[in-house]
Amino acid sequence: MNGTERRKNVQRLAILAVFSVLILIVFVISMNTGYSRLSPLEVFQTLFGMGTEKQELILFEFRLPRIVISLLVGAGLAVSGCIMQTISRNALADPSILGITHGAGVMVVLYLSFFPTQLDVPVLFLPILAFIGGLLAAALVFGLSYEKYEGLLPTRLVLTGVAVAAGLSALMTVLSLRLSRELYQFVAVWLTGSIWGATWDHVLALLPWIIVLFVFVYYKALVLDVLSLGKNVATGLGASVSKEQVILLAAAVGLAAACVSVSGGIGFVGLIGPHLARRLIGLNHKYLLPASALAGALLLLTADTIGRTILQPSEIHAGIVVAVIGAPYFLYLLARSNH
């Protein structure tokens, strides 16, 4: 490793450290803010078992699970978006734009429509349902965007994804009409992107998906580096392009679907997180994947904290806050892609 590459790696590690520190700062702020305020001293005392019963309830049962879920979902969606952008070589690829979150959502709403027991849905069952729906949507989008000799066509991929997402969104609306008022309100909130699964059971259900799939994808970092060079170059370097694309796409769908099952239809995290990381880190996936995870976690935790505090005692769902940021950014990227 030459001196220039060593300096770049030091800079990349420094950027990862900055992301981590920012997450820690927002984490502490999030623990201290909410409808029932806890001072920093009260949070510190409660963390070490010296708080009141009410303070322990607020911190351990309401805030901490939600904070952890926000971090896991943000990281999972951003890594999923990073994978999709690499294998499709399309800067606009994202689980929500490509209809994968909508496919996962349709499966969950289908379950609620025909088995209206939302309160009794096994927590561990939701990610599996969402994964099946997301995988079917991904297979449809990528199948319609694939040419035998040219591979995935970036422009067609986005257009197909937008069309499929619109169709699945309409299907969810139709299915929701047969729900009871209680379940309809749940689905309406879920579609806007709310950290609704804010319990330790949901954390335990989501955590294995994030850890296992991230470790697997990180193991494939070198493969992602090769795929980012294009089909012809990757094939020339000995990569089994189609096989690796399918495997990595399944991992990306698994990450996105598991996140959607506990957070609803949160969009743009998988678009903004990888873009921000790529601008700061570069194209080396050994550093880009963890940077994307940290950027996504920071973005969603910040959005959820803002949504909980800006209009107290009311609450703005995290998906809406992210959309306010993400929609203009998407239009900016779309405008740039035309040049």
Results as ranks from 00 to 15, higher is better:
Ile306Thr: 06
Phe131His: 11
Asn284Lys: 12
Leu255Glu: 12
Ser292Asn: 09
Leu300His: 08
Leu283Val: 05
Val212Glu: 06
Pro65Trp: 04
Phe216Met: 11
Ala239Ser: 09
Phe62Asn: 01
Thr117Ala: 14
Trp209Glu: 06
Val26Gln: 03
Thr173Phe: 02
His285Pro: 02
Val26Asp: 04
Val79Trp: 04
Val215Phe: 12
Ile320Gly: 13
Leu57Cys: 05
Ala250Val: 14
His339Lys: 13
Leu59Glu: 00
Arg178Cys: 07
Thr309Phe: 14
Val253Asp: 10
Gly161Thr: 07
Ser314Trp: 08
Val162Ile: 15
Leu311Ala: 15
Ala327Val: 14
Ile320Val: 15
Glu315Phe: 11
Leu213Tyr: 01
Glu53Ser: 14
Val123Gln: 07
Val109Pro: 07
Leu183Glu: 14
Val73Tyr: 01
Ile325Gln: 05
Ala257Phe: 02
Val246Glu: 00
Ala163Asn: 05
Trp209Lys: 00
Gln245Lys: 13
Ala239Arg: 02
Leu289Glu: 08
Ala297Trp: 13
Ile58Ser: 01
Ser70Met: 10
Gly134Val: 06
Phe216Leu: 15
Cys82Trp: 04
Gly236Ala: 12
Ala335Pro: 01
Phe114Ala: 04
Val43Ala: 12
Ala257Thr: 08
Tyr329Pro: 10
Ile132Trp: 09
Asn90Tyr: 07
Arg66Trp: 12
Leu280Pro: 03
Gly103Asn: 02
Ala163Leu: 09
Ala165Asp: 10
Val106Trp: 04
Trp209Arg: 08
Leu24Met: 07
Trp200Pro: 05
Leu119Ala: 07
Asn232Cys: 10
Thr33Val: 11
Leu249Thr: 13
Val321Ser: 10
Val79Ile: 15
Ile29Trp: 01
Phe60Ile: 09
Arg6Ala: 05
Phe48Pro: 00
Ala291Arg: 03
Ile23Phe: 03
Arg336Pro: 06
Ile210Ser: 08
Thr173Cys: 01
Leu294Lys: 06
Val226Pro: 08
Leu64Lys: 02
Pro290Gln: 10
Ile306Trp: 09
Leu92Glu: 13
His202Ile: 06
Gln55Leu: 13
Val187Arg: 02
Arg181Ile: 06
Phe125Pro: 00
Ala257His: 02
Val223Gly: 07
Pro290Lys: 03
Thr101Gln: 07
His202Gln: 13
Tyr329Gln: 10
Gly282Glu: 06
Ala138Tyr: 01
Leu227Met: 08
Gly265Val: 14
Leu13Ile: 08
Leu59Pro: 07
Val43Gly: 11
Ala166Thr: 15
Ala137Leu: 05
Ala335Tyr: 11
Leu77Glu: 00
His285Leu: 04
Ala252Leu: 05
Leu222Tyr: 09
Lys231Pro: 00
Val108Asn: 03
Val215Arg: 01
Gly238Phe: 11
Trp209Asp: 03
Gly319Glu: 09
Leu22Gly: 04
Leu283Asn: 15
Ser145Tyr: 07
Ser292Ile: 09
Leu153Val: 11
Ile58Lys: 00
Leu300Ile: 14
Leu191Trp: 01
Val158Ala: 03
Lys8Ile: 09
Val106His: 03
Arg66Phe: 13
Ser96Phe: 12
Glu182Val: 15
Leu299Arg: 12
Val321His: 06
Leu294Arg: 00
